[in-house]
């Protein structure tokens, strides 16, 4: 390697390291702060000490966070709601996209255009009508048919299962799959569902990972306003609503940081699990997460 190339590479790595720092430092700050008492946390935050495990370090904030709010329950709720929504979303969005791409039926272009157009509607526009709607829907439970979905898991799951983006991503991906594969499966005698399950889905790893991660982030990180609107029962609340517990009475920054650290773990775990497929899909489709 020539000197010039070495210098150029070092410069490049320095630059990339700097960019990486911009993304990593807030997380380092969060984790470090979660280990410090409030007074030190606030005084450290004006210097580089904010990013270092120095001074009075301990796990008191974690203990206090658990005693202030039912953290485990909130995490369970969020994971349950997210996982259920995610699985249903993957299944229904992909099967809808399959029909749009591979099956001929009258008017499908118009229907798809309408679905995609709904993507531009912000949640705030539909929030109130949606609230009125879910308040009047029936549900079959062990107690028979009940009316109104407020204070339940399903009210936090069903309205979020499908959004235009997921269908759109699957449609785009399916359009790029070789049509011959589907046609040869048809000639071989496969039913539409068999083609979906045995040919198309096994080849759709990248788009499944993309939709899974986007959906996970949407459900796990961003569910705040809707749960506040529809769930009053503490036992059904997700993590983001749980964050409010730490701003009531006196704001305990150390505990907030501890809570955030705890709830970040599932996100990181999920991302690391799907990282490879996610990067592959972004690289191949040009879709930005």
């Amino acid at each position: 390697m020539t000197l010039e190339r070495k210098v150029r590479l070092s410069g490049l790595y320095l630059f990339l390291g700097f960019i990486a720092c911009i993304f990593v430092l807030p997380i380092v700050f969060m984790v470090m702060s979660s280990l410090k008492p409030d007074l030190q946390l606030l005084s450290d935050s004006s210097s580089m000490r904010a990013f270092l495990p120095v001074g009075d370090i301990g796990v008191d904030n974690y203990r206090d966070a658990f005693s202030r709010a039912p953290v485990g329950l909130f995490i369970f709720n969020s994971v349950f709601i997210t996982a259920t929504t995610l699985l249903l979303s993957l299944f229904l969005a992909s099967i809808a996209a399959f029909s749009f791409v591979f099956i001929e039926w009258r008017g499908k272009a118009v229907v798809l255009a309408i679905i995609i157009a709904t993507y531009i509607l912000p949640f705030e526009t539909v929030a109130v009508p949606l609230l009125l709607l879910v308040n009047n829907l029936p549900w079959l439970s062990t107690e028979g048919v009940t009316w109104g979905w407020l204070n339940s898991y399903q009210v936090q799951i069903v309205p979020w299962i499908i959004r235009a983006l997921e269908i759109f991503l699957f449609v785009q991906y399916f359009r790029d799959l070789p049509r011959d594969l589907v046609e040869s499966a048809r000639v071989e005698g496969a039913s539409w569902f068999q083609i979906y399950r045995r040919v198309v889905m096994p080849l759709s790893g990248p788009v499944i990972a993309t939709v899974a991660i986007l959906k996970f982030l949407e459900m796990y990180n961003n569910q705040f306003i809707w749960p506040i609107m529809v769930v009053q029962e503490e036992g059904l609340r997700p993590i983001m609503v749980g964050l409010l517990y730490f701003f009531q009475l006196n704001t305990a920054w150390g505990e907030i940081m501890a809570y955030l650290t705890i709830i970040t773990v599932p996100v990181l775990a999920f991302y690391l699990m799907l990282q490879r497929a996610f990067i592959a899909s972004i690289a191949s489709t040009g879709v930005k997460g």
Binding site: P178, D180, L181, E183, S184, A185, V187
Partner: peptide
């Protein structure tokens, strides 16, 4: 049917 692109899975 045998396709031009082979169409094997």
């Amino acid at each position: 049917m045998v396709f031009q692109s082979y169409a094997i899975f």
